[in-house]
């Protein structure tokens, strides 16, 4: 009976994990929609386009998020190996790096704004698009931070290992996705600057 329950929990967790993958697909489609919108819009006239060099802060933030993917990976490894102390440590590190990413991006907007590239009342909406990309991505970072907190709390409340690993996996799938998503957006912007 107990064995059966474990089997059912497992298939169900598998189905739930699959939900996360599907969500990533829909999220990616959202960004694909935005970037195609950018391409269609920018191609419409020679006056459009980003028309500036991206602030180097974006590069630093990229480094921060790549590093956070690494710590995320280590957290999952630790969690699966029952080393819960390091699991929590690496999760915390990932969280901090997420915040660092956020702050550096904030600085990048300030640099853009100081060059007169504003979100509102900009006749060249290609530049407004940059903000939409970045903000939409940051919304995902916030969600990712929420997941990290959830994973850490689960461990604190001493939930079953099968669920702890589940939370870790969900969090890491999502976190790696927003990492890759940022790289996609960054490269996209670099190619269009």
């Amino acid at each position: 009976m107990a064995q059966l329950n474990i089997e059912e929990t497992k298939t169900n967790l598998k189905a739930k994990k699959f939900l996360m993958w599907l969500f990533l697909v829909s999220s990616f489609i959202y960004f694909a929609g935005l970037t195609s919108g950018f391409i269609v819009y920018t191609a419409g006239s020679a006056n459009r386009g980003i028309k500036t060099i991206l602030p180097e802060e974006f590069m630093y933030s990229t480094a921060a998020i790549i590093l956070s993917s690494l710590t995320m990976h280590l957290a999952v490894r630790a969690g699966k190996g029952l080393r819960f102390g390091s699991q929590q440590l690496f999760l915390a590190l990932t969280f901090v790096l997420g915040i660092v990413f956020f702050v550096i991006q904030w600085k990048a907007w300030n640099v853009l704004a100081s060059r007169g590239i504003m979100f509102s009342f900009n006749k060249n909406a290609s530049q407004s698009f940059v903000y939409v990309f970045v903000w939409s991505h940051l919304a995902h970072i916030l969600a990712g931070l929420g997941l990290i907190v959830g994973a850490m709390l689960g461990r604190v409340r001493n939930i079953a290992q099968i669920r702890n690993v589940f939370r870790l996996e969900i969090t890491s799938i999502f976190w790696h996705f927003i990492d890759i998503l940022w790289i996609y957006l960054y490269v996209f912007l670099l190619l269009n600057q």
Partner: peptide
């Protein structure tokens, strides 16, 4: 397909309320 509508609606909301010109 729905996420693409979200993208379109987000830009529309910005145009309505935040002064952008998409």
């Amino acid at each position: 397909s729905f996420p693409v509508l979200v993208a379109g609606v987000v830009l529309l909301i910005f145009d309505r309320s935040f002064g952008t010109s998409f």
